[in-house]
């Protein structure tokens, strides 16, 4: 199973925000889009950073009552860990658990091709388990 299998079912759309937007705008977007992270891009193509619910929550510890006015660029992760469409899902699981991240932008030929989350990986795994169970059931029926 590859990253491209996940992207096939969820699509390549990536929700973005600009680095000069405020933490308040970021919070509004996260909440309205019902996502856990946004890719930061000033021109809509480059991967300038990533900002997650975690960055906002931790940001409160650092910035206190002024957090809502802090620009995204001061809260985002700049050294973004990415993956490619031909990477295996097991490898993606490894990266996510070891680096403690939940969102992995997928880059293909320098182009942003989508984003894979820990929730996507879990969903995929559950479908695999269901498939294995069905195969086993069919094998048992056939052997009778």
């Amino acid at each position: 199973m590859l990253v491209s299998d996940i992207l096939k079912s969820k699509g390549a759309s990536v929700k973005m925000i600009r680095s000069d937007d405020s933490a308040m705008v970021c919070a509004q977007r996260l909440s309205a889009e019902r996502v856990g992270a946004l890719v930061v891009s000033d021109n809509g193509r480059s991967l300038d950073g990533i900002i997650s619910e975690r960055d906002i929550a931790y940001g409160l510890a650092k910035h206190g009552p002024g957090l809502h006015a802090v620009p995204v660029r001061d809260l985002m992760t700049k050294a973004v860990i990415t993956s490619g469409p031909r990477e295996s899902i097991v490898q993606v699981m490894r990266v996510m658990t070891q680096r403690r991240i939940r969102h992995l932008p997928i880059v293909d030929n320098d182009r942003l091709a989508g984003i894979v989350t820990s929730g996507d990986v879990l969903k995929h795994r559950l479908e695999e388990v269901q498939l294995e169970a069905n195969v086993l059931r069919d094998a048992v029926i056939a052997a009778r």
Binding site: S52, G64, P65, H68
Partner: peptide, 19 residues
Amino acid sequence: ISERDVAYALATHLGELHS
């Protein structure tokens, strides 16, 4: 209570959130 609850609440509670 999760990171998500804190992040989403910033949109409506702004400077009051921390207290």
